[in-house]
Structures are given as structure tokens and as C-alpha cells.
Computed example of a mutant assay.
Amino acid sequence: MIPVKFSIPVSMDIYDVKEMFSRYYVDPEIARKNVPSKWKIKIHENGKALLLVMVQDCKKMVLQRLLNIGSVRMSHIWIELEGQPELIDSLPGTSRTLPTWYWYIQPHQLDKRLAVFMFKMAGVSAQYVSHISLGGKPGGVRSGNVNERKTPDVSYNWTERSQLYPEPDIITGSHRFYRKYGNRESEAHVT
């Protein structure tokens, strides 16, 4: 049997977005339990794997340039992978480009059932969660949480300390994402 790689183009436009990124170093065995053996987890100098939590509060989400979902909060958990060195061209209006980061993604967690349904229809792994909080305004200490069920015992929380840049640093970033769904795999490139 020849493996088939599916690629379904998915368009998602999000507007008036507030985001929070937090990086956590975790035991590589914890990361390995969540990443199929096909992908190699990147181990850093401290002997740990990198887990990134990104939470977004989107005032408007439009899927396939047609369906307005309205306001949605999303949480993403990514585990860093080894990848080929890659530097893409800078986008207009940016000062520089960062090297591409490679990630294995867990299902997108969304607080709106319609968004979860539409993601799944497009072939994107998604999970409904009952609550997502960004944890306050940037600058200083803020705490947030995601309740995966209506009970607080199935949740994760974080506290992060952020410091705002004295002036904006507008750069081009590149991320390649991978996910395995049963016998099928997906990949995406976001610039």
C-alpha cells in the first residue's frame, strides 16, 4: 500500500486578535508520549523538549473567506520538532525573518462548537473546550487557563511574566506544523 498524503487547503482569517505565547521546557518522555515516532523531538541544551502554548482571543473568525464564525477563543499546544534549516523571504513591512520552527500540534481547542464543527469538516483536528482565558493584559504577570470540560479538574493553567517591547519589532516568522490522524497525516506552513 502506498501512503497517501492529503492536503486540504483551509483558509482562516482572524481579526482583532490578542495572543499569548508561553514556552515551557518539559521532560522529553512527556513530549514523546504525545508525538508519533515518525517525528524527532528537538532536545535543547538543557536536555528538555520545548512545549509552546498559544492562546488567541479573536473578535472575528472567517473560514474559507465565506463563513463568519464570530468571536472565538483558541488554545494551541505545540511540541517542537527537529527540522531542516530554512529561512524564507521577509514579508513587506517587516525588518527581518526568523528561521522556520517545526512543530507537532495537538488538536486545536476552541470555545465555540460551530468553529469546532467547521474545523473538523475541513479535516483539521479540533476539540471543544468550555473555557479559555488569556489571563489579563500584556506586561507584568498574568495567569490564564483552559477548562477542557465543564469541571475544573480537566484543565491546564499557566502563569507567565511578560515585558512589552519598548518599540514594535515587526518580523516575518515561519512555522511548519504536523499532525497524524489515524492513518492520515497533515502538514501546514504558516508565514
Rank of each mutant, 00 (worst) to 15 (best):
M1L: 12
I2W: 00
P3N: 05
S7W: 00
V10F: 12
V10N: 13
S11P: 07
S11M: 10
S11A: 14
D13F: 02
Y15T: 06
V17Y: 06
K18A: 11
S22D: 11
Y25M: 13
D27P: 02
R32I: 02
R32K: 10
N34R: 08
K38N: 11
K40Q: 15
I41F: 00
E45G: 15
K48V: 07
A49N: 04
Q56H: 13
Q56N: 13
C58Q: 14
K59F: 10
V62E: 09
L63E: 11
G70I: 00
V72N: 04
R73S: 13
W78N: 14
L81I: 02
G83L: 02
G83V: 03
P85N: 06
L87E: 11
G93F: 10
T97M: 03
Y102N: 00
Q106M: 11
P107I: 00
H108L: 11
H108V: 15
D111I: 01
R113C: 07
R113S: 12
K120E: 14
A122W: 00
A122V: 01
V124C: 03
V124T: 10
S125Q: 13
S125V: 05
A126Q: 01
Q127H: 09
V129I: 09
H131E: 15
P138S: 01
P138V: 07
G140Q: 01
V141N: 08
R142H: 15
G144C: 05
G144Q: 02
N145W: 06
N147K: 09
N147G: 03
E148P: 02
R149C: 11
K150C: 09
P152R: 04
D153K: 07
V154Q: 12
N157H: 15
W158G: 08
Y165V: 08
P166F: 06
E167R: 08
E167Y: 02
P168M: 02
I170G: 07
T172E: 03
H175C: 13
G182T: 04
E187K: 07
V190W: 01
V190T: 08
T191G: 11
T191Q: 11
T191N: 13
